[in-house]
Simulated assay, not measured.
Amino acid sequence: MKQYGVGVFGIGWVAGEHIKSYMRNPHMKVVALSSRRKESAEAAKATLGLDSDVLNTFDELVQRDDIDVIDICSPNVLHAEQAVRAAQAGKHVVIEKPIAMSLSELKAIRDAIVKAKIKSQVGFVSRWNPHVRSIRGMIDKGGLGELYYVEVDYYHEIGPWWSGWSWGAGTKAGGPSASLVAGCHAVDLLSYFGGEVEEVFAYGIFGHRRDYEYEPTYVAVVKFRNGKIGKTGCSFENECPYVMNIILHGSRGSVLNERFHAKDWFPGQEGWQQFNSTFLDSGDVAHHPFQGMMDDLAAALIEDKETIANIHEAYRSHEICLAIDRSIETGWPVTLPLSE
């Protein structure tokens, strides 16, 4: 049985769930860990009972011949540089979102991965959520007809309680924004359901908190390339539980979060029906379906096919996020594809 060696860099909350998912797939083996703080890697090895090496630097991961896949869970501002270096070394890459802080970084990652002809998987883990999979199945099988409106919003209070606050939310150093830090999950689903976006117009505000260096709340209207419309929003300052809002309207039916109405499939229905699935209703990474993400990667490696959240899909979603940020900054609509 073919088994692929995995090296993980950046051992934090998310990395722990990545590692557990690799451990449950017989085709993947975590052979080495590394982090900016070596103690974090040592602690993860002990807690998870790993038979793996703990290395001092990212360079050591890249140089290991027994590592086929490098999983990048470092702070956001390091993702692009590390992904390019891993690709240039011929390693397949798993990159936590956001993969880039700028258009130039985004292009550099895509070009490096394409040139190296390696597999890529980006941490848009919501694609494997059972509720999302049900919705995508309805779309693919025509249950909603032709979509003409797609709305996906991410509402999750983020504050100093988060371990990544100093580099992910509380400062603009390195380029973070609400769209890139986490609103990208909603943006990715908007793209996943609706397709390519042609134009974005967004507003950003400071609602009632001032402990961010960028607008923690925004709303964006989008026009898809097929002429249909949509909307995506995000807030890190909301005083409510985690919400991923999903509203779709098509020519044959609609989705309203946990409910759906599909008149062709259920001609006798008199009202909304309920999805019976696990929903996107928690910000706890242990709740996220990383197993599906890693199993998809393993299948792509074995069968030599593309992953579901490959670099091309991720490029499209990140480009929308950058367009949102540009529109907030300029006060003007932004047309895609972006130029420098």
Rank of each mutant, 00 (worst) to 15 (best):
134 S>R: 14
167 W>Q: 00
202 A>T: 08
135 I>G: 05
177 S>D: 03
131 H>I: 09
169 A>N: 09
171 T>C: 00
156 H>W: 14
161 W>N: 11
167 W>C: 00
164 G>D: 08
146 E>F: 02
169 A>V: 02
139 I>F: 05
131 H>C: 06
178 A>V: 14
197 V>A: 08
147 L>T: 10
194 G>E: 10
188 D>I: 01
188 D>Q: 13
154 Y>I: 06
150 V>T: 15
138 M>R: 11
128 W>M: 08
172 K>I: 14
163 S>R: 02
162 W>S: 13
171 T>P: 00
209 R>M: 01
203 Y>R: 15
142 G>D: 07
186 A>K: 08
207 G>W: 04
145 G>M: 08
151 E>R: 15
133 R>F: 01
128 W>E: 07
144 L>K: 06
181 V>Q: 06
143 G>S: 07
190 L>R: 04
177 S>C: 04
188 D>N: 15
178 A>N: 07
196 E>M: 08
186 A>R: 05
209 R>I: 01
204 G>D: 05
180 L>E: 01
174 G>Y: 01
195 G>H: 09
144 L>Y: 05
154 Y>N: 11
201 F>C: 10
159 G>H: 12
190 L>T: 15
142 G>L: 06
163 S>C: 00
202 A>L: 09
127 R>M: 11
127 R>G: 01
198 E>C: 03
169 A>R: 03
200 V>W: 07
156 H>R: 10
151 E>T: 07
165 W>Q: 02
200 V>L: 11
141 K>E: 14
143 G>I: 00
136 R>L: 12
149 Y>K: 13
185 H>K: 08
191 S>G: 05
164 G>N: 04
197 V>M: 07
201 F>W: 11
176 P>R: 03
135 I>N: 08
141 K>Q: 14
169 A>C: 12
153 D>K: 12
165 W>H: 04
131 H>Y: 08
194 G>L: 09
143 G>P: 00
155 Y>G: 07
144 L>G: 04
143 G>H: 13
159 G>D: 15
131 H>N: 07
164 G>F: 03
130 P>I: 10
160 P>L: 02
179 S>D: 03
129 N>W: 09
198 E>M: 07
145 G>K: 08
204 G>E: 06
155 Y>I: 14
148 Y>A: 02
148 Y>F: 15
132 V>K: 09
159 G>R: 09
130 P>W: 10
163 S>E: 13
157 E>N: 13
136 R>Q: 14
154 Y>S: 06
181 V>L: 12
138 M>T: 03
142 G>V: 09
135 I>E: 04
171 T>Q: 01
168 G>D: 02
173 A>K: 11
133 R>C: 06
203 Y>H: 12
128 W>S: 04
132 V>M: 11
129 N>Y: 13
194 G>D: 12
193 F>T: 05
144 L>I: 11
157 E>P: 01
135 I>V: 15
161 W>R: 12
184 C>A: 12
145 G>P: 09
139 I>M: 11
151 E>W: 02
196 E>N: 13
148 Y>Q: 07
154 Y>E: 13
144 L>S: 07
195 G>I: 11
168 G>E: 02
